[in-house]
Amino acid sequence: HTVDVQGVTYHFDNPEEARKFAEEMAKRLGLQVHVKDGRYKVE
């Protein structure tokens, strides 16, 4: 499970961890979480 944050890619084994990380980063950076091709993108 992959999370892209402003061009940096993070990998997680656990989909729940990936989702939480994406939401946390989006909140911290004031950005949105998009799901695209099964990847989380924070932009």
Results as ranks from 00 to 15, higher is better:
36 K>T: 12
32 Q>A: 13
27 K>P: 01
6 Q>P: 03
23 E>R: 08
33 V>P: 02
27 K>F: 13
21 F>E: 01
19 R>F: 09
42 V>M: 03
27 K>V: 09
6 Q>E: 11
33 V>F: 06
30 G>I: 03
6 Q>R: 09
4 D>A: 06
2 T>Y: 15
5 V>A: 06
22 A>D: 00
22 A>W: 00
15 P>G: 14
10 Y>W: 09
15 P>T: 12
29 L>S: 03
28 R>C: 14
9 T>D: 05
10 Y>K: 03
7 G>C: 14
39 R>F: 10
34 H>L: 09
3 V>P: 00
23 E>M: 14
39 R>E: 15
36 K>W: 06
24 E>Y: 14
40 Y>P: 04
22 A>R: 00
18 A>I: 01
21 F>M: 04
4 D>Y: 08
9 T>Y: 10
43 E>C: 15
7 G>H: 06
26 A>M: 02
3 V>S: 01
37 D>E: 06
23 E>G: 07
42 V>D: 03
19 R>H: 06
16 E>M: 10
20 K>R: 13
16 E>C: 07
27 K>A: 13
38 G>R: 05
5 V>S: 04
33 V>N: 02
21 F>Q: 02
39 R>N: 15
28 R>E: 08
14 N>G: 11
3 V>K: 00
1 H>T: 14
25 M>S: 08
41 K>M: 15
31 L>F: 08
30 G>E: 04
9 T>V: 14
5 V>D: 01
28 R>N: 07
26 A>L: 01
4 D>T: 07
42 V>L: 10
6 Q>H: 08
40 Y>C: 08
2 T>H: 14
42 V>P: 03
4 D>G: 05
22 A>H: 00
31 L>A: 08
1 H>C: 14
25 M>C: 15
13 D>A: 11
40 Y>Q: 03
3 V>F: 01
32 Q>E: 09
15 P>N: 15
23 E>P: 00
9 T>C: 14
9 T>M: 13
41 K>L: 15
21 F>G: 01
29 L>P: 01
37 D>K: 05
27 K>I: 09
41 K>N: 11
43 E>M: 08
34 H>P: 01
23 E>Q: 11
35 V>Y: 15
21 F>W: 07
24 E>M: 14
11 H>P: 05
16 E>I: 12
15 P>M: 11
38 G>N: 07
33 V>Q: 01
14 N>H: 12
38 G>I: 02
24 E>S: 11
37 D>M: 04
31 L>Y: 07
13 D>F: 10
3 V>Y: 00
4 D>M: 07
8 V>T: 12
23 E>D: 09
7 G>W: 05
29 L>C: 07
42 V>F: 03
22 A>L: 01
18 A>H: 00
29 L>T: 04
1 H>R: 10
2 T>I: 15
18 A>P: 01
1 H>L: 08
43 E>A: 08
18 A>R: 02
41 K>Q: 14
8 V>W: 10
41 K>D: 07
10 Y>E: 01
35 V>A: 05
38 G>K: 05
34 H>W: 08
42 V>Q: 01
10 Y>G: 00
27 K>N: 08
32 Q>T: 14
20 K>S: 12
8 V>Y: 12
17 E>M: 11
19 R>C: 10
26 A>H: 01
4 D>R: 06
26 A>D: 00
2 T>R: 09
31 L>H: 04
17 E>Y: 08
39 R>I: 15
33 V>M: 06
14 N>K: 12
5 V>H: 04
30 G>Q: 05
30 G>N: 07
30 G>D: 05
18 A>Y: 00
30 G>A: 04
42 V>K: 01
6 Q>I: 14
8 V>G: 05
11 H>G: 07
33 V>H: 02
39 R>S: 14
10 Y>T: 04
4 D>C: 09
7 G>M: 05
25 M>G: 03
22 A>M: 01
27 K>L: 11
28 R>V: 09
4 D>W: 13
17 E>Q: 11
31 L>W: 09
11 H>Y: 13
36 K>V: 15
8 V>H: 10
33 V>C: 08
39 R>G: 15
2 T>C: 09
25 M>E: 13
12 F>R: 01
6 Q>L: 15
7 G>D: 07
40 Y>H: 04
38 G>V: 02
37 D>F: 04
43 E>G: 14
17 E>N: 11
20 K>V: 12
13 D>C: 14
29 L>H: 05
14 N>C: 14
18 A>E: 00
18 A>W: 01
35 V>G: 08
15 P>H: 12
1 H>Q: 09
25 M>Y: 06
14 N>V: 09
25 M>R: 06
34 H>S: 14
9 T>P: 08
20 K>I: 12
12 F>K: 02
34 H>A: 08
37 D>W: 03
32 Q>W: 07
25 M>V: 08
30 G>Y: 04
22 A>E: 00
13 D>M: 10
32 Q>Y: 10
19 R>L: 11
15 P>S: 13
28 R>S: 08
25 M>Q: 11
9 T>H: 09
1 H>W: 11
9 T>K: 07
36 K>S: 13
10 Y>N: 02
43 E>V: 08
23 E>F: 15
40 Y>T: 05
7 G>I: 02
14 N>D: 12
38 G>T: 04
38 G>S: 04
37 D>S: 04
21 F>N: 01
16 E>L: 11
31 L>C: 08
27 K>W: 10
9 T>A: 09
12 F>E: 00
19 R>S: 06
13 D>H: 10
8 V>F: 12
14 N>L: 10
43 E>I: 07
12 F>L: 04
33 V>R: 01
39 R>T: 13
16 E>K: 09
35 V>S: 06
11 H>M: 13
12 F>H: 02
24 E>R: 11
42 V>Y: 02
7 G>T: 05
5 V>N: 02
5 V>E: 00
19 R>V: 06
27 K>S: 10
39 R>Y: 14
17 E>W: 07
37 D>N: 09
34 H>C: 13
17 E>F: 08
26 A>C: 04
5 V>G: 03
2 T>D: 13
30 G>H: 06
19 R>T: 05
27 K>Y: 10
26 A>I: 01
11 H>C: 14
2 T>V: 15
